[in-house]
Amino acid sequence: MHAAEITDPPAGPPEEAEPGDIILSARGITVGFGSKIILKDLDLDIRQGEILGFVGGSGTGKSVLMRAILGLVPRRAGRINVFGYDLETATAAQRQSIERRWGVLFQQGALFSSLTVRQNIQLPMREHLKLSQKLMDELASLKLELVGLPQDAGHKYPSELSGGMIKRASLARALALDPDLVFLDEPTSGLDPIGAAAFDMLTESLSRTLGLTVYMVTHDLDSLHSICDRIAVLGQKKVLAIGSIDDMMSNDDPWIKSYFRGERALRRT
C-alpha cells in the first residue's frame, strides 16, 4: 500500500476498535523549525493491533514526527486523529483519556532522575488511579519482570543504570497503565544483539497478548524483519513508502533499496 491510497480519517465517537481499524491517522502534517521545514504534508495511518516499524535516515525527522503526534512539537499544519478524537478539538478531559491510553519510550529514556525506577513506574498509576501501595508495588515488580529487569533494579536511580536498563525501565513506565498504543523511539539501539532480540520478542508478545498497537522507530533490520507487520519509510519530508517487508524488499526507490538490500542488509543473511 502506498501513502497516496490512504482513506479519510475515521470520524465520530470512539467505538470498540477491531484489529485492523485505524487507531491513529495523521493528515497533511507540516512541521518546521525556523525557516527549515522538517516534515511537509505527511500522511500516516496506524492500525489497531499492528507493529509499525518506522525507518529513515538519521536526522530525517522520525523523532520530530513522533513528538508532533504526541503534541510536544507544534505543527504548522495538519490534523491528527487518535482513538477517534481530533487532537485539536479534543476537550481537556478527552485529551487526558487519550494520554492515559498511550505510552511513550523516548529516545533518551527520559526517566525522572530524582525518582527510583519503581517510583518512575508507579508515577502514572499514582497520578491517574487510586490504588493501594501494595498493589502498586506488586504491579511495578510485575512490569519490571515483564521488561526483563531484575527486581533490585527497582530501587536504583536512573543515573545508576546502564543504557539498556534505562530503555527497559522506560518501557516499563510506558506500560504502567496498560496502554493501547505505545510509541517506541529506537528502543533497541544501544542494546546487545541478545538483549535487542529479547526486546523484540517482548514487544511482539505484548502486542499479541494485549492487543497493543506499537509505533516503533528503529534501525534494527532484525526487528523490521521479524516482528513488524508494516514498515514506513520517512524521506523527503514525507512517508516515502509504507507496506510489508516484502514490499520494501521489492521497492525501487534508491534509498529504500540500499537500506533493505544494501551490503549491510545482505550481510545479515
Binding site: 506488586e138 515488580s141 510485575l142 519482570e145 515483564l146 527486581q151 508478545s205 499479541r208 497478548t209 494485549l210
Partner: peptide, 12 residues
C-alpha cells in the same frame, strides 16, 4: 498466554 506470562512472575 496472558495468564501463563503472569504465572511466571514471583514477586518478592
Amino acid at each position: 498466554s496472558l495468564f501463563s506470562q503472569i504465572e511466571q512472575h514471583h514477586p518478592p
